[in-house]
């Protein structure tokens, strides 16, 4: 008997091993999850794309890591400080940080993404200009910071003051948008594993961001991906860094609770 098409297109069984260490690309679904099991987007890519991520020398995202390391030590702004002045060695100072983003900030009175935290340090602590959301510098720094959590399970706070934001993100996730009238859930929940034209639909997880996308020829942020998905259904996207995208990021992060950080991942 033939297998059904959907079964043949499910996530593959490949293992992501980097430098001899396995990084789990699936995880038990958290309580209340719509999924039976969580899968990283890596499991839906071709083996050629997967291989690029399995070797840091082949991984095109690593050019940005080099830039990030330079920026980490660069003194900038009126206070005469670099990131290293306060946080020391990045591998110690930033270990685990990516895994819990976005985080509640009492000072800001709202959740803060990794980009927000970095810019707060730049403007309020260094006296330097904020980096633009999608700038080469911001992508390099979020990639470098993310790498320090690689292999660690993600977990975000969703209760307390986060709850309202989480609800808002959930709302956005299930709202149909655009002329083509689709919600995130139509593609990434109801149809992951299927082919939509040339694209193998994943669960739309964000554990690998910023990702190096072959199509972009560079790294891109979580909000850039959200924007692209909205544009594909002919919806006016929210702005990068907007409250809407922060809420959506929080909610999507919670849907991936337990998946390992893969930054910088490679996608097509």
């Amino acid at each position: 008997l033939a297998l059904s098409g959907a079964a043949a297109a499910d996530p593959d069984d490949n293992k992501l091993i980097i430098d001899g260490e396995e990084i789990a690309t699936d995880a038990a679904a958290p309580e209340g999850s719509p999924f039976d099991r969580l899968y990283s987007g890596w499991r839906f890519r071709t083996s050629e794309t997967q291989d690029l991520q399995a070797d840091d020398f082949e991984n095109p995202g690593f050019a940005a890591i080099t830039l990030g390391e330079e920026l980490w030590d660069t003194v900038e702004g009126s206070e005469g400080k670099s990131c290293a002045s306060c946080h020391g060695d990045v591998s110690e100072g930033m270990k685990g940080v990516r895994a819990n983003m976005p985080k509640w900030s009492e000072a800001a009175g709202k959740p803060q993404t990794l980009e927000n935290h970095i810019n707060t340090c730049r403007t309020d602590r260094m006296g330097a200009d904020a980096w633009k959301w999608e700038s080469e510098e911001m992508l390099a720094m979020t990639a470098l910071v993310g790498l320090q959590s690689r292999g660690m399970p993600t977990s975000v706070q969703t209760d307390g003051p986060m709850q309202e934001w989480w609800e808002k993100g959930k709302d956005l996730y299930y709202t149909r948008v655009g002329q083509l009238d689709m919600a995130c859930a139509n593609c990434h929940e109801a149809n992951f594993g299927k082919m939509i034209r040339a694209d193998h639909l994943s669960q739309g997880q964000i554990n690998g961001f910023p990702v190096y996308r072959l199509k972009w020829g560079g790294l891109g942020s979580i909000h850039r991906r959200f924007k692209g998905c909205m544009e594909n259904v002919r919806a006016e996207p929210f702005k990068r860094g907007s409250d809407e995208f922060i809420a959506l990021e929080l909610y999507v992060a919670s849907r991936g609770e337990g998946l390992s950080v893969e930054t910088p991942s490679v996608r097509n």
């Binding site: 709202t175 149909r176 948008v177 655009g178 009238d181 689709m182 544009e231 002919r234 919806a235």
Partner: peptide, 12 residues
């Protein structure tokens, strides 16, 4: 159709 249609597709 869905919310926030891009301007060029509004009303179409």
């Amino acid at each position: 159709n869905g919310a926030r249609p891009m301007e060029e597709f509004q009303g179409k």
